[in-house]
Structure formats: structure tokens, C-alpha cells
């Protein structure tokens, strides 16, 4: 397989994640869409690590590892926020979150 095939899969996964984040009304599913977009970026990093011309064989892989760690932190804080909001409003529907407007 070549580089472009992996990049096309990553692009489609990014578009699907964007669609989920834009269209689903549940806050948890919006977070799921953001996770999918981050995963698509990680797939790009690993594909370039494998197929690119690299003088330094470590950098691409460690970028992906750090990105996974940051995404895990983002997921935990985001889901904590959803649970805190649910405790106030008894819903996780984004359309009902109009009180969060500035």
C-alpha cells in the first residue's frame, strides 16, 4: 500500500468526525466526533512516519504518542464537563444549553 491510500482514509475519517460534531445534538457524541478527528490526524502522522523520507526515525512516532496522551486528557475533562452540566440541567442535549451563551 502507498501513502496516499492511508491519507485518504484519514481524510474520510476526519470528514466523518466533523459531520458527527456538527450534526449530533448530544454533547457526548460531539466529543466522540472530536476524538475521531484527532485520530485521523494521528493516522496521518503515522503514515508519514512510515512512508516519508525521515532522517530522524523517532520523531513522527513520538508526535503520535504525545497526541494520544493529550487527546486522553481532553476526553476526560470534556466528559467531566458534560456530567457537571447534566447535574445542573438534567440533560446533555446541546440545543438545551442556551444558558451557556455569553
Amino acid at each position: 500500500m502507498n501513502l496516499t491510500a492511508y491519507l485518504v482514509v484519514a481524510a474520510l475519517l476526519f470528514a466523518l468526525g466533523l459531520g458527527i460534531a456538527l450534526t449530533r445534538r448530544n454533547a457526548i457524541l460531539v466529543l466522540i466526533g472530536i476524538e475521531l478527528m484527532l485520530n485521523a490526524a494521528n493516522l496521518n502522522l503515522i503514515a508519514f512516519w512510515r512512508y516519508g523520507a525521515h532522517p530522524e526515525p523517532m520523531t513522527g512516532m513520538l508526535f503520535a504518542l504525545f497526541s494520544i496522551a493529550v487527546a486522553a486528557a481532553e476526553a476526560s475533562v470534556g466528559l467531566g464537563l458534560v456530567i457537571a452540566w447534566f447535574r445542573h440541567a438534567r440533560t446533555s442535549d446541546l440545543d438545551a444549553m442556551t444558558r451557556m451563551k455569553g
Binding site: 481524510a11 470528514a15 466533523l18 459531520g19 456538527l22 450534526t23
Partner: peptide, 14 residues
């Protein structure tokens, strides 16, 4: 509208 935007982004990327 959301899916039109997402499909457009995917099409441009591919």
C-alpha cells in the same frame, strides 16, 4: 447543512 459541510471538507481533502 452539517453533513453538506462535512462532505465538502472530505471531498476537498481527498
Amino acid at each position: 447543512i452539517g453533513w453538506v459541510a462535512a462532505v465538502a471538507v472530505g471531498f476537498v481533502l481527498v
